[in-house]
Design a protein around this nucleic acid. Structure first.
Lengths: 206, 206
DNA sequence: CACTGCCCATGACAAATGTCATCCACCCGA
DNA sequence: TCGGGTGGATGACATTTGTCATGGGCAGTG
C-alpha cells in the first residue's frame, strides 16, 4: 500500500455520469479512496452514517435535500466528517449559507480533477478552501439588504403567485405584502417584484 | 491496435471537471478516442472544424452558443459528424428543437459511462438514440399551443419587464401586447404572465 | 368564394399591483 | 423613564395589468 491511511470519500451527485466519472478520476490518486456514492440528499446522509467518510463531496443541487442541508445534518451527526461542496451554478448567497453550515470547501465544477484532489486533501487536513472567483462574487454581492420579512415575502412571490396568495401563505394583510415587495424592489433597484425576485435569486438572497 | 478504426470524439462541456472526467472514462473504451475538447459553443465549433470528429458530444447549456445552435452549424459544415447532446436539465421542448437541428442522440447526464459509450457507438453507426424518459416527457408535454407572436412576447416578458417596455421592444402597441400575454396565459393555464413565462420555459416552449 | 385562423389594433372596464403617509410596538441608550 | 429609531403593519390612492368585445387585413383551404 503506497499510503498508509487513505482519505475515505463520500461522493454525492445526482448525475450518474458525473459521479461515476469523478469517482474514476479520484481513484487515480493513490491517497484517496471513494467508499460510498449517493444520488440524492437523503441517500447521501444514509451513506455517510453507514460509512463515516473522512470527507463528503456534495453537489449543491440534488433531489431531496440540497448539499447545504446535508452538510448541516452531517455537522450534527458526524462532526469529524469534513464537507466539500461542488456546484455548477455558484450563486453568491449559497456560499455564505454553506459556510454558515460548517462547510469546509466550496468549488465550482469548472475545476480540474487534479485541483479537486488537492482541495480534498486541503479540506481533510482541516483547512478551508473557497474558490477565489466565487469568493469575489460573494464579496461583490455583499450582504442582503433585505429584512427577514422582505426576503420571506419575496421568496413566496418568486413563482409568480398573486399578492392575495402570498398574503395568505405569509399570514399578512395584502397591503403589508405589497409594502414589503415594494421596498424590496426599490432596495434591489428593480421596477417590480418579479425582476426583484429574479435579482434576489441570482444573488442568493432568497 | 485493438480496433482498426476508432471513433473520433469531440467533447464539449463548460465544466472542466465533468469534461475531463468524461474524457477519462471514455478513454477506457478501446474503440473510442477523444480527439478534442471544448468549453464553450464557439470553441466547440472551432475544434470540430479543426479535427472533423466522427461524433460530437455536446452539453446543452454552454456559454456562447448552446448545444443545439452548435449542432445546427455543424450540420451545415460537417454533415458527416453525428451530434449527441448531453444535458442536466431535460426540458421537453429542447428535445424537439434538438431533433429538428439534426441531432442524432439526446441523453441526460444521469446515464452511466458504459451506457454513454454504447450510445456513442449507436449514434456513430447512423442510428438515433433518445432517452426514453425524456422522450416520454416530450410526448406528454406535447406541442406548444402558442402562436409565434405569443411566444415572442412571452419571452420578452420572462425577465419581468413592464408591458410598456415589451411593447417597445416588440414594436407593438401595449394593448396588443397585453392581448397576447393574456391569451398565452390562458392557453398555459396560468394566472398571470409571469407564471405563464415560467411554465413556457419549463416546457421548453420559449 | 366563403370560411377559418392568425395578426394587429383599439377602447373600456375590472382587478391586481405599486406607492405613500401614517401608526403601533418594541428595543436601546441617554 | 423618556425620547428616538426601527421593523412591522394598515388603508387610501394612483398606476399598471388583465379581460373582453370588436374590427380590419391577410393567407390558406375546402
Amino acid at each position: 500500500m503506497t499510503a498508509v491511511q487513505r482519505v475515505r470519500l463520500l461522493l454525492a451527485d445526482d448525475e450518474h455520469l458525473i459521479r461515476g466519472a469523478m469517482a474514476a478520476l479520484l481513484a487515480l490518486e493513490d491517497d484517496l479512496l471513494v467508499v460510498a456514492e449517493a444520488a440524492s440528499g437523503p441517500e447521501a446522509l444514509a451513506m455517510a452514517r453507514a460509512h463515516a467518510p473522512d470527507v463528503a463531496v456534495l453537489d449543491l443541487q440534488m433531489p431531496g435535500a440540497d448539499g447545504v442541508k446535508v452538510a448541516t445534518s452531517l455537522r450534527a451527526e458526524l462532526p469529524a466528517c469534513r464537507v466539500l461542496i461542488v456546484t455548477s451554478h455558484g450563486r453568491p448567497g449559497h456560499l455564505k449559507r454553506a459556510l454558515g453550515a460548517g462547510v469546509r470547501g466550496f468549488v465550482p465544477k469548472t475545476v480540474s480533477a487534479q485541483k479537486l484532489a488537492e482541495i480534498i486533501r486541503t479540506v481533510h487536513a482541516g483547512n478551508r478552501y473557497v474558490d477565489p472567483e466565487l469568493a469575489a462574487d460573494a464579496i461583490a454581492a455583499g450582504d442582503s439588504p433585505l429584512t427577514e420579512r422582505e426576503a420571506e415575502v419575496l421568496e413566496l412571490a418568486a413563482e409568480g403567485a398573486p399578492v392575495a396568495e402570498i398574503a395568505e401563505r405569509a399570514a399578512l394583510s395584502q397591503g403589508t405584502v405589497r409594502n414589503y415587495l415594494s421596498s424590496a424592489a426599490s432596495k434591489l433597484g428593480a421596477e417590480n417584484r418579479h425582476t426583484a425576485a429574479r435579482l434576489a435569486r441570482e444573488r442568493g438572497w432568497v
